[in-house]
Amino acid sequence: MAREALSKQETAPKTKPHPPEEESSLRGTFVSVLILGALIVGSWAAAFWLYLSRG
C-alpha cells in the first residue's frame, strides 16, 4: 500500500515532495523503538539500584 502511494508520486511528480508520514504507517517501528526505550530505562534503573545498594 505504501509502495503504491510512492510509485504514484514518482510517475506524477509534484512540485512539493510528499512528506513520508503520509506514505508509510511505521507503527511497527514505533513500537520497536518504544521497547528499546523501555529496555534502556529499565537497565539503567537496575544499575542505579545496584550502585545505591553498594553504597
Binding site: 505504501a2 509502495r3 508509510s24 511505521l26 507503527r27 511497527g28 520497536s32 523503538v33
Partner: peptide, 19 residues
C-alpha cells in the same frame, strides 16, 4: 527500523511486526 518496515510492507507484510 523504518527502512526495514517500509521494505517489509512493500513486500506485502501484514500486522505490527510482519515486516
Amino acid at each position: 527500523f523504518a527502512v526495514f518496515e517500509n521494505r517489509g510492507r512493500a513486500m506485502g507484510a501484514k500486522g505490527l511486526f510482519g515486516w
